[in-house]
Simulated scan of single mutants.
Amino acid sequence: MESIYIREGAAGDIPLIRELAGRTWWPAYREILAGEQIRYMLDRLYSENALQEQMERGHCFLLAYKSDRPWALLPGPSARDQEPAGFIRFTFCPKHRVREQDASSSTPLN
């Protein structure tokens, strides 16, 4: 059985976060957004500068790994959040089905 673990991304992970965003946004949004809009959003939200600024403001990017390989990018809580979100939408890389998981569950994802 393959194991999945999640860790918080750091500034050194910005290239990986950008890669995962590019690999997940296109399949997730291409049917509802024009390519130009996807490119704009990726540049606005996931450029190196944008990610650095978001991290400095306390935004958290969670990275999911499956069998020690980057597998998904998850929106994490902001440092300003008082309570955990409780529900996270997972955006998986292509070839993986989209799945939602209750973030408060203690059951590991497999």
Rank of each mutant, 00 (worst) to 15 (best):
M1Y: 12
M1Q: 09
S3F: 04
I6P: 04
E8L: 13
G9C: 03
A10Y: 03
A11I: 13
A11P: 07
G12F: 00
D13I: 00
D13T: 00
I14H: 01
P15R: 04
P15L: 06
L16Q: 06
R18Q: 15
R18Y: 02
L20A: 01
L20Y: 00
W26I: 12
P27K: 09
R30V: 07
R30T: 13
R30Y: 13
R30F: 12
E31S: 13
I32A: 05
L33V: 06
A34D: 09
G35W: 05
G35H: 04
E36Q: 10
Q37F: 05
I38Q: 00
L45C: 05
Y46W: 03
S47W: 00
S47F: 00
N49F: 13
L51N: 02
Q52N: 07
Q52G: 11
Q54S: 15
M55H: 08
E56C: 08
E56N: 12
E56M: 03
R57D: 02
R57Q: 06
R57P: 00
G58W: 14
G58L: 08
H59V: 09
H59K: 11
H59E: 10
F61D: 14
L62R: 12
L63I: 15
L63A: 14
L63W: 12
A64Y: 10
A64L: 13
A64P: 09
A64F: 10
Y65C: 03
Y65W: 06
K66Y: 07
S67V: 03
D68A: 09
D68G: 07
D68M: 05
R69M: 11
R69G: 07
R69S: 12
R69Q: 14
P70Q: 02
W71H: 09
A72Y: 06
A72T: 13
L73M: 08
L74W: 00
L74D: 05
P75N: 10
P77G: 15
R80H: 09
R80S: 04
D81A: 14
Q82V: 12
Q82T: 12
Q82S: 11
P84Q: 04
P84L: 04
G86H: 03
R89L: 15
R89M: 13
F90H: 10
F90K: 08
F90S: 08
F92P: 11
C93D: 06
P94S: 01
H96A: 15
R97M: 11
R97K: 15
V98Y: 11
V98F: 12
R99I: 08
R99G: 04
Q101I: 13
D102V: 12
D102F: 13
A103Y: 00
S104P: 06
S104F: 14
S105A: 15
S106M: 14
T107K: 15
P108G: 04
P108A: 04
P108D: 04
L109S: 03
L109V: 02
N110C: 14
